[in-house]
Write a protein that binds this DNA or RNA. Structure first.
Lengths: 219, 219, 219, 219
DNA sequence: GATGAATGAGTATTCATTCAT
DNA sequence: GATGAATGAATACTCATTCAT
């Protein structure tokens, strides 16, 4: 985690550094990111960089906390449109809001997913982060089971893996297409894109949802 | 593509070099792979490396052809168990055989998927390879539509993207878990794993398959 | 142009580096100069070199500015001996002073002319420098025409080319012979050498100068 | 000098190698020429190269003999147009023929002059070659003195240097401009170019020629 | 707390030459 | 006589990190 010196910095200066770092990781990943370029692009000195952060990875770790923080802020003000929504409905709502969040911070999201999926799988350091989000999913599925929406005999690990994979796939897909657009936020909100997200989610939902006869075969 | 010099090498020496390269790409990806380490680990000289290959990417390209070659060899002797199998059944068979292939060449597969998914998204050079496999999928879906297994109004691009993503997800998942096992080939063949693969595939299949009433909503 | 880092260096250290660079370019030209040798001979580290300069060519460009600066300093205190001197007389004076300057900085001059004539013809990068000096010559010839010293119908491009070539030839000749001497500055100042320079200049002067009858044939 | 093995080669093969070498030296000079590229472009093996030549410089030396040989062949069939021509007239004729020769072998001439002037001045190895051509000039001037065309008190070394420098300058100038033309041979033969060469030569001639009053000052 | 110069090991790639076949 | 694989030092340039000021 960044040192106190960094956290004491005026907001504006901190933002410049963070933006430079986001750009660097988005373009080059973690292993290939250059601290030289980060300091050059943010206008701070080499010495300051190492007074703010332990090392390159430390910066990246900080970006993760930034993402988590922004996401929390974003969702704080949001509430599912209807009270009596089943778990899948809730998940669908969440994913779609997530896509809108992503379109608000596309570079940051891009930077982090590039590293997490490209290099993270082979590094140990990010396991705890993945673990945290998986626990959230697990709780959601438990809830769905209690609601009778998902068969209690479901293979929990598998379901988590499926949902995680699928969410990421959708997120990646939307982000990649979205980066080609002029106004990504507007594009994501468009009916066409929302419909596409729906379709992708339905595929997973149909597969996971409790169905009378076929279910035994699946889970 | 590697130069003739390399192809003329005795099998054993070539294997040592290929193995060193596989290890390097598996551990570091393409951008971060070090030719220095490759030559050090394979015991050849710097000069020889560049007498064998055009450059770093050339080695990687060669690994891809190796993978493709091995896969072709592997599938040459294999035939679907039953003649009257629907498209999904065929796809299921193929994926499962694919998993067994992967378990026979886990490092090679790991090296290549690491690069293709980690960096490939951001590099142009691999587009044609992805394109080739996507055309295969497209043809398979066309077949399924002709067989009446999939609704003709399906959104083809979307379906291809779903199948591609899902196959890769399964492959990744199995590989990752499998690398933790003592005997990965045996593990993949075990009933427990095969059942898991089935379940994952069913999720997608249910989502994509033509169902009476729900289908309109999906595609 | 060199980075600030270099300009901030203590004079002595800067001189060591500059001298090493001069030697390198004088011995090997630009294309074949080795940054490795420059850093080795100046006792700085690889990293420092690139903290001082953009690249190899940057060092050379700096040497050019050094030469220009020194030349300006040298000529600042000098004035033509007589007020009523014709253009050729002025040019003769300038060349002779130039030779004395060259004998004060023989290695630097050698380094730069070696590159400019040896490689410059084939590289584009030095065109603007040559252009600058050629414009000076052009102005001087214009002056000579206005003074009635040179026929107005003269082929200007040709005249410029002749003077440029000739000046360089003299400069080269003197430098080459001079490098064999113990005390080059003293040697250049000697009556014998000054007389030789005069003779060389007269050849050109006679050729260019307006003469009654023969002129039509020439220009 | 090339080894006997090279000289035994069939003409055609030898020509291919020579052409590849000419290109290489013309583009890169001697120090930067790459034997690797020469063998690659001529289709011979690395081993053969070193069975034909001692080393890189040996190839270049051979090119010089090729140039000398071709020049001799070219001039063998040529004779000055008039018997009673003075030395300057003879020299003028020779230079103009030389320009035509150059335009017949522009790459070869370019390759050699690039090296001789760019690097040769600083290398020892080419001294004997320069020396040979200077002796020719010296003899020509002696002749001119005997003919009473040049004052006997002339400074011989100086005159040689002037003529050598000037010839090279003209040659360089013509070659450089000529390389930009479509048909260089035709261009050189054109009246416009011939006139320009004349003018350049006259400048030197006027300077050197014995003139009544001014001469004492010059030589 | 901020600076930025210093560093040497690192990068990918090319070199001229040798020598066993 | 021809071959071409092998080599290690060479090339220009970048790296993350330290540390004295």
């Amino acid at each position: 985690m960044p040192k106190q010196t960094f956290l004491n910095l005026p907001d504006e200066k901190r933002k410049i550094i963070v933006d430079a770092a986001i750009d660097e990781f988005a373009e080059h990943g973690l292993e290939n990111a250059s601290t030289n370029r980060i300091v050059a692009n943010s206008g701070i000195s080499k010495g300051s960089f190492y007074q703010y952060f332990e090392d390159k990875q430390d910066v990246f770790m900080y970006l993760i906390t930034v993402l988590e923080h922004e996401k929390m802020e974003y969702f704080k003000g949001k509430h599912p449109p209807s009270m009596n929504m089943d778990t899948f409905g809730y998940f669908r709502w969440m994913i779609k809001e997530g896509m809108q969040f992503n379109s608000a911070y596309p570079r940051l999201v891009q930077a982090i997913s590039r590293v997490m999926f490209g290099e993270g799988l082979y590094y140990q350091n990010f396991n705890h982060i993945r673990e945290r989000s998986m626990q959230g999913l697990r709780a959601m599925i438990q809830q769905a089971i209690q609601n009778g929406e998902v068969d209690p005999s479901v293979d929990m690990d598998l379901a988590v893996m499926i949902i995680e994979t699928w969410s990421n796939a959708i997120s990646n897909y939307i982000l990649q297409e979205g980066m080609k657009q002029k106004d990504i936020m507007k594009w994501v909100r468009s009916a066409k894109v929302q419909e596409r997200i729906d379709k992708m989610l339905y595929v997973m939902e149909y597969g996971l949802r409790k169905t009378e006869s076929d279910f035994e075969k699946t889970f």
